[in-house]
């Protein structure tokens, strides 16, 4: 659907890419021309020609687009015009900030805590944006909910580790070799976690009256544990343990 794009982005993107292209040209020119090994006759056109040509194409096309945007041309935006669709710059900035924090804290905090933190924070922001009912992120209730979610995730992670250890123990002490197979362990952990989450759901009902807050905690912890089971236990990816080193 065609609709006018806000001028800053319609102009800012081609200008940024134009500057990027200029920078790329300068960078390419600063490099030595490399030729293929063994090309003593110098037939290889060298390492500069393709990047330079392509950067020139980008520079020219983006200058053209920037000039068009400057003269008030319109462009199509993918998601414009739909009812209820509205820009949310603050929400976007907070999402990006939390995602950056996740990348930075992923190793020191560990997968479980960082993921729970990310999911809880983002979902809280979204729910607050939609309903305006849940308090501020920094509010006491929000922080208390986060503390509950982190403690809950830690407990479930401990249960998962305990289940895995029990599997190895069974294999070692009783010869149940199947119990040390990754797929069998993943299945056992998934079942144990599902059961624990069902029981915890009942406990959360008594602890937290607001169903949206309960959903927030269950979703952020449940999704974290599901990703843990798939990537860590099924695919054996070395997700960082961080603070939860047991």
């Amino acid at each position: 659907m065609a609709m006018p794009v806000r001028p800053p982005l319609a102009l800012a993107l081609p200008l940024s890419l134009f500057l990027f292209a200029l920078g790329y040209i300068a960078f390419t020119l600063s490099l030595d021309v490399e030729r293929m090994i063994g090309d003593d006759a110098g037939y290889d056109p060298g390492s500069r020609i393709v990047p330079l040509t392509v950067a020139l194409i980008l520079a020219v096309t983006m200058l053209w687009e920037a000039l068009k945007a400057r003269h008030g041309a319109t462009a199509s935006a993918e998601h414009g015009g739909e009812a209820g669709v509205e820009p949310a710059p603050r929400l976007l900035a907070l999402h990006v900030a939390l995602a950056v924090a996740f990348v930075v804290l992923f190793r020191p905090l560990g997968f479980i805590l960082a993921s729970t933190l990310l999911l809880y924070g983002l979902t809280l922001l979204n729910l607050r944006h939609v309903t305006h009912r849940i308090g501020m992120l920094g509010g006491l209730a929000g922080l208390a909910g986060l503390a509950v979610a982190l403690a809950y995730a830690t407990a479930l992670y401990s249960l998962a580790r305990g289940t895995i250890r029990a599997g190895f123990w069974l294999a070692r002490e009783h010869g149940a070799t199947l119990a040390r197979e990754p797929n069998a362990q993943a299945l056992c952990v998934a079942l144990a976690l599902a059961l624990a989450m069902l029981l915890a759901g009942q406990a959360l009902r008594r602890l937290i009256a607001d169903p949206q807050r309960r959903l927030l905690i269950q979703v952020s912890v449940g999704a974290t544990m599901a990703v843990y089971v798939v990537f860590r236990l099924l695919f054996l990816v070395q997700l960082p343990a961080g603070l939860l080193s047991w």
Binding site: F102, V103, F106, L118, L119, T123, A223, V227
Partner: peptide
Amino acid sequence: LSLLIPLVLLLSLV
């Protein structure tokens, strides 16, 4: 979508 967007971001990064 308020539940799906965080999940998509987490899955993308992890």
